[in-house]
Structures are given as C-alpha cells and as structure tokens.
C-alpha cells in the first residue's frame, strides 16, 4: 500500500515538474508570439529601419545576421573538419580525450570573453573598426566545439569495415579519408553547423563591441571598416532606448523573427540528429 502510494506520488511529482517546465517555456514563447506577431508582415522583412526603429522593417538586420552566420560557417567548417580528423584518425587514442576536453572547455567559454578577445586582436592589434569579418570569425570560434563534436561523433560512428575494406583495396590513408570518411561525415558537418549557428544567431555579446552597429550599415563593401546590422543587437539597443511607443511592437517583432530563425536552424538539424542517435542506442 505504502509502496504504491510512493510510486504514484513520485510519478505525479516528476510529472508536475515536467509539466511546469514545459509550461514555463511555452509561456515564454507565447509571450513573444503574442506581442511580436502584429508587427510581422512582408514589409517588415523587406524594408530598412525608419524613424529610428519606429517604422519600416529589419531587412538589413536580417541580412547582417545572415552574413555573420555564413562567415561563421566558413570559418568553423574547415577548422572543425581538421580537428575531427585529428581526433578520429591522426591522434593516438590517449590524446583524444585531451582534445575533446579542450573542445568542451572552449564550448563553455562565456561569449562576452570572445567579444573582449576580438577587441584586443582586431581593434587593438590590427586597428580594424567594427567589421562583419571580426564578428564572423568570433562566432565561428564560438560554434567550433559544437561543429567539431558533431563531426567527431559522426566519424566514430562510421563502421570499421568501411575503412578496412578501403585499406584492403590498397588505398593510402589520405585516400581513405577522402573516399570514405569525408563523404560519410557530411551529415555531421551539416547538423553540427546548424546547431552551432542556431546558437550564434542570437548571440549579442561577442559582436556588440566588434561587428554590429545600430543603423545605416547595408551590404558590407569592404572588410576593415564594414560593420553590419544584426537582429540581437537591434533588440539590445532598442530594449534600452526606444523613445516612441511604436518602437515597442517592432521590437517584439524583431524578437519573434530572431526566435523563428533560431528554431528553424535547430529544426533543420533535427532529422539528421534523430538518425544519428539510433545506432548509438544499440551499443
């Protein structure tokens, strides 16, 4: 009797925890959608900011965030592939743990520190102004662990017999990498990058001192002195400085847009992740 009671109580309590957690998070999404939805229409995505945020749209903010993300991908992809090969192929097994630990630590580095680091290297040493490239590189480094770890998992999940068969055919190591490992790991690269970019899209701290400004930047025409606009910085500035009440609705609209962008990126990564998880469960 008592056992049964505890059992039911326990199940109820944990169920309530789960329900509460989902409810809190659901409320958050609802709060944003409710306030942001009225601002969303086609013009909001195709026009530039007008009247200091009170009118117009966020076209160049979207463009800027897009540029930062593409750059972050271009920076992180080759480095992540190299590190994953280092981990899966070149390093002796003993060292692999150290590399993985380093990646996890890099993953934990607070994003504001990347901003300060970027300021030291690009502004202080190289004398650049705010630049999309600085932002892209910093975000690239931020997502590097996510991309690399996804790749590492993918590579270690390649059945051994593939490599053995290729070796039996007399392929050299580099040929095996190009013929077997790289094609097999494309999925990991895509998944990891999408997950990483979902996080990078919403980051303000690394880019606020180094890459984005409030208004007027369009398609960057150079490197050193070419900032971009971005969605998160727009929200950060307007949350502190919005004179006109009309800014409020645009502000929530921007937040909702950013949220949708982040969700889209993570959802796009989903099918591949579900597939990836399955073989792991058999071990």
């Amino acid at each position: 009797m008592r056992r049964k009671f505890i059992h039911h109580f326990f199940r109820l309590a944990t169920g309530l925890c789960a329900a509460a957690a989902c409810a809190v998070l659901g409320l958050i999404v609802w709060a944003i959608v409710k306030r942001g939805w009225p601002a969303i229409n086609w013009r909001f995505f195709t026009e530039q900011i007008l009247l200091v945020g009170a009118d117009g749209g966020i076209f160049y903010n979207l463009l800027g965030t897009g540029i930062l993300l593409v750059t972050a991908f271009c920076v992180s992809a080759p480095v992540a592939l190299s590190l994953a090969l280092l981990h899966g192929v070149y390093l002796p097994p003993k060292r692999r743990g150290t590399l993985a630990l380093l990646l996890y630590i890099l993953n934990g580095v607070p994003s504001i520190l990347f901003g300060i680091f970027g300021m030291i290297v690009f502004v202080q040493f190289l004398g650049w102004g705010k630049s999309w490239l600085t932002g892209g590189i910093l975000l690239g480094f931020m997502i590097l662990p996510t991309v690399t770890i996804a790749l590492m998992e993918r590579i270690s999940a390649i059945p051994r017999k593939f490599g053995e068969a290729a070796a039996a055919l007399g392929l050299r190591e580099s040929q095996i990498i190009r013929a077997v490992i790289l094609p097999q790991s494309v999925g990991g690269l895509v998944t990891g990058s999408l997950l990483g970019l979902a996080r990078a899209a919403g980051e303000t701290a690394p880019i606020m001192f180094t890459a984005t400004i409030f208004a007027g930047a369009t398609m960057p025409s150079g490197i050193k002195e070419s900032p971009v606009l971005s969605l998160p910085y727009h929200i950060f500035i307007l949350a502190q400085d919005s004179f006109d009440p009309a800014v409020g609705s645009k502000l929530w609209g921007t937040a909702l847009t950013l949220l949708m962008l982040v969700f889209l990126l993570s959802l796009a990564a989903l099918p591949a992740r579900l597939k990836l998880k399955q073989p792991a469960h058999h071990d």
Binding site: I213, A215, T218
Partner: peptide, 27 residues
C-alpha cells in the same frame, strides 16, 4: 543616444534623398 534620435532621422533623409552612405551607432 540622446543626440542619436534627430541625427539618425536626418541620416535616413540624406540616405534616401542624396544616396549618402551613413552608419550610426551609439556605443
């Protein structure tokens, strides 16, 4: 940020009318 309001709006006008390239920030 105080001066930004009129200047940013002036910049919007100049961008539209004189095709000037003006970037504004309040860092």
């Amino acid at each position: 940020t105080t001066v930004n309001l009129p200047v940013a709006e002036a910049a919007e006008v100049l961008r539209a009318e004189k095709k000037m390239d003006i970037q504004i920030d309040t860092q």
